Computed example of a mutant assay.
Amino acid sequence: MHILFVADPLESFQTYKDTTFAMMREAQRRGHSVAACEPRQISWKRGGKVVAHVRHIRLTGQTPQWFETTGEGLQELAGFDAIVMRKDPPFDSEYFYSTHLLEQAEREGARVFNKPRALRDHPEKLAILEFPQFIGPTLVTRSADDIRAFHAEHQDIILKPLDGMGGMGIFRVGADGRNLGSIIETLNRGGACSVMVQKFLPEIAQGDKRVLVIGGKPVPYCLARIPQGNEVRGNLAAGGKGVAQPLNDHDKAMAEAVGPVLMERGLLLAGIDVIGQCITEINVTSPTCFQEIFDQTGCDVASLFLDALEQAQAQP
């Protein structure tokens, strides 16, 4: 296959932990050709097809110069066998517009994974609303009064913006309510922005688990991201420690229930975040943790992903 990865600048990759790099490496190992572009390099003009300025690359197996460019230029997206959308959040207006350009490319014959419409339909914080049987007490609102009432009921709560990533903008407010008013003002901006509020789950001490689902099936190992020191967030970007571990029966059952639903909608890869017994988020833009799981367990997640990608691409 000729695979195009739509991603952040290649020069920004931290290859020792980057999941997109792991995908590219496995694709090249299997004999597939690899190309890359950034969303800003995609365009469309009446009378033509969706195109992008792409770089055809070869992975060198070296660092820091981990790739070399073997060719570049303007190319129709429909000319690739598969397009893998791996642009990191935030899911801002430009990300939104990119999904529309990719969807136009689909109409022209391109195969895009994850599907652009599915990316738009599953915002990572709000996707859990469809599965209330698996989530803890949760509120989504712009109302400061509603947030205060939720705090009065549950005492210990987590507040977070709907467009954050990597633990950005997450606050914990305990029973004393200290700084609740200031946090509400910061997050909801006078009622202009919606906020997600969840009951604090003390099981976070054992880790915020990333359960990967590929082709509708759970990967047998997850990565528990454990908060360090006084930090309440387990996100690796916020300093959490990643510990790979086998899926327990409960996490596997939740992933087996949610995974086929996501796959049917065109989400070939998703990352389900689990604290204790509860799903807290469903990540679909650029789920990570492939390399951490492989390094600690030997489970080759990138190979599982390429298996699923090859199978999905071959289907009519």
Rank of each mutant, 00 (worst) to 15 (best):
I3A: 13
V6S: 00
L10M: 14
E11S: 15
Q14V: 11
T15R: 09
D18V: 00
M24D: 10
R25P: 03
R30P: 14
H32E: 04
S33E: 14
V34Y: 09
A36P: 00
E38C: 12
R40Q: 11
I42V: 14
K45D: 09
K45S: 12
G47V: 05
V50K: 00
R55P: 01
H56W: 11
I57G: 07
R58Y: 03
T60C: 04
T60Q: 02
P64C: 07
F67C: 10
F67A: 12
E72G: 03
L77W: 02
R86P: 00
P90T: 05
E94F: 14
F96E: 07
Y97T: 05
T99I: 08
T99E: 07
H100I: 07
H100W: 15
H100R: 12
H100N: 09
Q104T: 14
E106F: 01
E108H: 05
A110V: 00
V112G: 01
N114H: 01
K115F: 03
P116Q: 02
R117A: 13
R120S: 09
D121L: 13
I128E: 04
I128D: 05
L129M: 15
E130Y: 10
F131W: 12
L139D: 08
E153S: 12
H154K: 08
Q155V: 07
I157G: 07
I158A: 13
L159E: 06
D163Q: 10
M165K: 14
M168G: 07
F171H: 15
R172D: 01
D176Y: 03
G177D: 04
G181C: 03
S182H: 11
L187W: 13
G191C: 06
S194Q: 11
M196V: 15
M196T: 05
V197I: 14
Q198R: 12
K199G: 06
F200L: 04
F200E: 05
P202D: 12
E203Q: 15
I214Y: 09
P218F: 13
P218N: 12
V219T: 12
Y221Q: 08
R225I: 05
Q228Y: 02
Q228F: 02
Q228I: 07
G229Q: 10
N230F: 03
R233I: 03
N235E: 07
L236Y: 05
A237D: 00
G240R: 08
V243R: 14
V243M: 10
Q245H: 02
P246M: 08
L247E: 05
D249M: 03
D249Y: 01
D251K: 04
A257W: 11
G259D: 10
Q277I: 02
C278E: 12
I279N: 09
E281C: 06
V284K: 00
T285R: 01
T285I: 06
S286Q: 00
E292A: 15
E292I: 04
F294T: 12
D295N: 14
Q296R: 06
T297S: 15
A308F: 10
A314R: 15
Q315I: 03
P316K: 11
